[in-house]
Structures are given as C-alpha cells and as structure tokens.
C-alpha cells in the first residue's frame, strides 16, 4: 500500500486515534439574518460508526456538514473533530483538520475541467508529496472499489448521475480520511443506482473502518445503510443484513426546523411515538 504525507500535517495514523470521537457537537447553534438554522444541537460520532441525519428540506441537515468541514462557523457551542476544536479555528489551521474529512457533495461537485482520474487523485496530486506512480495506483484502486475503473480517462460530463456520485465517493476516500460526510448522496437517483451508492457507503464503513455521517431524506437509503453490513469473503465483498450489534453502531438523528427531536438506532426510530417522526416515516 503506498504511503504519503499530507502537507503541514502529522500522519493520518497518529491523528485518527481509535479512542477519540470522530465528531462531537456540543450545544451548537447557528442563525442567518436573525433566523435560527440550528438550535442547541449535540451529538457524538464514534470511530467506525454511522450517524444518519434525517429531516425535511431546510431543516439544517446539510448545514451540520458544512459546520463540520468549517465552511461555516457556528454562533454558539463547540465542534470537535478527532480531538481538535474547530468552531473558532482559523481557515489556515482548518485546512489541516480537513485532512481527517472526506465529503461527498449533493451533486458530486466534481471538477468539470479534470478527468475522472484527476478528480479522484486531486488531493494526492496537489496536496501531498506522493510519487505520481503511487497516486495513479491509488486512483485505480479506489476507482476499482467503486467499480468505475474503465472510466478513468473520461470527463465528468460523460458520466451518468450515479457514476458521478460514485466518482465523488472515490475522490473523498482516495486520501483515506477516517471520516466521510455524505450530503444527499442518493437524492435524484433511481432506486437501483441509489442502492449501489448505499452499498459503497456500507463497504467504506465496514471494510475501510470509516466513520460516516449520512445526510438524507430518503428513508429507504437511510435504513439500508443502517441495517446492512459489508463482509469480505476472499476477493469478494458481500453486502448482507447486519446483526443487532452492528445495527446499534448506526444512529439516526431527526431534525425539525433546526432542532434535534430524535436520536437513536433504527429500531428506536421505528418505535418512536413522536408525531413528527411518525409522519416522516409514514
């Protein structure tokens, strides 16, 4: 496996200590022009676990991901990423923290002037000292993981919507971040393509031990990710229904108008008596 050093940062191994929570939100609040977007949000994402953030459009789901990445700063509360407090961190230092985080944007946000291979290897080419041959090998490896090896030389405009999302996943995982954030990764895709994306999320979590935050309003995809696991069988990776212990590692968060109204696993979500949760699930 090729090794590489991310500029101005300690190695990934040292940063992603297994006993430190991947993400911690403590009483986080945010408002734009006097309108509250998030109010007193608190949760913890443990390493290798999954948080699935549900909620209607405009409930503040994607804002949480932008706060984690430091693209927005909260008005109050604390945000911790792998042991570093980031809610007041300057942009230059935030760049180093982002080496812990991979993000899959809603529409993929692929760089349309670069090929698929250049998109996937972007961070390794531009922000690390990794030799070009090793970058190429890593790009081929992650494109193989998302089953898009034959598209390495294509431009993003030549790909379908589902393929673009998978390339976005490959780009986010190429530099092996310990935490991945998915912003509506399956929205607008047909159920079959959406399932392939869900499988990639499960594979990354279980095979690569990546902590995940999945923002979605697609219940079908949310429950698929929460109730399935990936198991390596020789050269093959099999996706199958998860046991109860594994299911407990995926927790749901339900947002309503910027307020956290539910936190618990899939079984607890289904059993919730909250009227809003019940309406959302129906």
């Amino acid at each position: 496996m090729p090794t590489f050093a991310i500029r101005d940062a300690e190695t990934l191994e040292r940063r992603s200590s297994p006993d430190r929570p991947a993400v911690v939100f403590k009483h986080v609040s945010l408002a734009f022009d006097g309108k509250a977007i998030l109010r007193d949000i608190s949760f913890t994402l443990l390493p290798g676990h999954t948080k699935i953030i549900l909620g209607a459009s405009g409930s503040g789901k994607s804002t949480i991901l932008k706060l984690i990445l430091g693209l927005l700063k909260p008005d109050g509360g604390e945000i911790w990423i792998h042991g570093s407090r980031v809610d007041r961190m300057p942009e230059a230092e935030m760049m180093k923290v982002r080496n812990h985080l991979g993000m899959v944007f809603q529409e993929g946000a692929l760089f349309d002037s670069l090929t698929v291979g250049e998109n996937v290897g972007y961070k390794l080419y531009e922000e690390t000292d990794m030799p070009l041959d090793d970058v190429r090998r890593r790009v081929e490896e992650v494109l193989g993981f998302v089953r898009l090896s034959e598209h390495i030389e294509k431009m993003p405009s030549e790909l379908s919507g589902g393929q673009r999302r998978r390339v976005a996943i490959a780009r986010a995982m190429a530099f092996k971040p310990p935490t991945l954030l998915y912003d509506e990764a399956t929205t607008g895709l047909d159920p079959i393509t959406a399932t392939t994306i869900d499988e990639e999320i499960v594979k990354l979590r279980d095979i690569e031990n990546v902590s995940s935050i999945v923002v979605t309003h697609q219940l079908r995809d949310a429950f698929f990710v929460a109730t399935h696991e990936a198991i390596r069988l020789g050269d093959q990776i099999e996706i199958s229904p998860a046991d109860a212990k594994k299911c407990d590692e995926a927790e749901f968060i339900m947002l309503k108008d910027g307020v956290l109204i539910f936190e618990g696993n899939a079984a607890e979500l289904r059993a919730s008596t909250d009227p809003y949760v019940q309406t959302f699930l129906s």
């Binding site: 990445l69 760049m95 982002r98 946000a109 692929l110």
Partner: peptide, 18 residues
C-alpha cells in the same frame, strides 16, 4: 454554484491560492 469551490476547500485547497 456547483459547490466546486466548497469541494476544493473540503479537499484542503485554498481557492485563493489555487
């Protein structure tokens, strides 16, 4: 508008420098 600038920042690249 296509979030590519945010993607750059998320990948640790300063859009001003790049």
């Amino acid at each position: 508008v296509t979030d590519q600038i945010n993607a750059l920042r998320a990948l640790g690249t300063d859009p001003v420098r790049k």
